[in-house]
Structures are given as C-alpha cells and as structure tokens.
C-alpha cells in the first residue's frame, strides 16, 4: 500500500472540491488513512482553488509539502503551472484543456501563458506531462460539468485500485441525474490515459 499524494488545482466552480472529496472517500473505503484539505476562503469568489489529498498507512499533515506531489491534477492550465513546483521529481502532471483567463491577464502586464510555456514550466520538474481533452470527453458524455470525473478517471489508470473501487463509491455519492454520465466520463478518462500512456510509454 503505497502512499499517494495528489494536488488538485483549478478555479472556483470546476468541481475541484467535489473531486478531492470523492478521492479522499475512495481512499478511506479502500483501507487507506486519508486526509484532504482545501485552500478556499475568499478563493471561492474567482480565485485559485487548491485541494490536497493524501492516502497512506498513517497520514499526519493534511498538506503535501513542496516537492512531494505524486500527481498534479490541473483542472485549469495556468493553475497547473502555478503549482508545478509542488511536483516531486518524476511526478505526473495531468492537465485539462481548460483555460480561464484572469482579469489581471486581461488588463495587466503579464499575459496568460501558452500551453507550450506551461509545458516548459512543468518540465522543470517532470517529463510525465499529459494534456487531456477533458472538455471534449465531458461533452461527449453529455455532461459538460464532468471534467472533474474525466480527470479522476485519467488519474485512476496510474493507481493500483480497480475501477470498481472508484466507481462503487462514486455511485453512492453522485446525484442520480448525473450518475451514469459521470461514471462514463470517469471510464473514458481512464481509457484516454491507457491510450496516451501506451503512445508515450509509462
């Protein structure tokens, strides 16, 4: 049972908190000690949202130290770049194709970085960088808000738990209206990971 440290970053309204809540509960239901914590407060009004999820035999600190993140889930590209330094060397960066341009980049002096620039920033810490078509997949399943489920699905492909270990908990948590489409988004995310890993190599 290896320790797993996941940092989920994004902006308000993108389901970061729901995803990290779900991931923590899945860990608990599968025998891990878990802790999860968010940086929120005024962030819920358009600022960055950061969730730390830790699975382990015994977890002390709820927050992951810089350089200790196994998986960085960027629900938004700029936020992925902002938190790149939290990756451990060789950690995995999973970034959604979501761009939310902050006001400061519209009227300010620092422009929103291109994906190539973001990739360079991430590459300082790891060569395992995946930009995933999460928006497209979420639209395919008819649930545009399911980007977070695509992200979790993609992440699941790197971890030892079986897909049912994830989806069983999700079924209990998800509202009936979005249950099937969310699970489908999760499975498609996992499939996407398998395809991308086989192309890229593990």
């Amino acid at each position: 049972m290896n320790d797993v440290n996941v940092l989920m970053v994004g902006v308000g309204g993108h389901g970061v908190i729901l995803a990290s809540d779900g991931m923590a509960e899945i860990g608990m239901n599968n025998g891990y000690d878990v802790k999860k914590t968010d940086s929120l407060g005024m962030a819920q009004r358009g600022g960055s949202v950061v969730s730390h999820v830790r699975w382990g035999k015994h977890v002390y600190s709820p927050m992951i130290e810089k350089g200790e993140v196994d998986f960085l889930l960027g629900f938004e590209q700029l936020e992925a770049a902002r938190w790149a330094s939290y990756l451990r060397p060789g950690g995995v960066a999973i970034v959604a194709d979501v761009v939310v341009i902050p006001i400061s980049a519209i009227d300010g002096k620092i422009p929103y970085p291109s994906w190539d620039e973001i990739k360079v920033t991430l590459a300082e810490y790891t060569d395992q960088i995946y930009l995933i078509p999460a928006t497209r997949i979420a639209e395919e399943v008819g649930n545009p808000r399911a980007v977070n489920m695509v992200m979790l699905g993609f992440l699941s492909a790197f971890l030892a738990l079986k897909p049912e270990a994830w989806t069983d908990t999700m079924r209990l948590r998800l509202p009936p209206k979005f249950r099937d489409s969310s699970i489908e988004a999760f499975i498609k995310g996992a499939d996407e990971a398998k395809t991308m890993i086989s192309v890229k190599g593990p």
């Binding site: 902006v11 005024m42 962030a43 819920q44 009004r45 358009g46 600022g47 960055s48 810089k66 350089g67 700029l78 936020e79 770049a81 902002r82 330094s85 060397p89 902050p102 006001i103 400061s104 980049a105 300010g108 620092i110 422009p111 929103y112 970085p113 620039e117 360079v120 920033t121 300082e124 810490y125």
Partner: peptide, 22 residues
C-alpha cells in the same frame, strides 16, 4: 538529503488570480 528541487531556470511570472466579484 533530498535532491535539490531548484529548477534549472527561474520560475516564470504568471498572472495572479485574485478573488473577484462574480
């Protein structure tokens, strides 16, 4: 004794994401 985490090039300047009215 952890390996140095310092990146090879300086961190890029990124636009801030301040909380704002909706």
């Amino acid at each position: 004794s952890k390996p140095s985490l310092r990146p090879k090039s300086p961190a890029p300047q990124l636009p801030a994401r301040r909380p704002q009215l909706c």
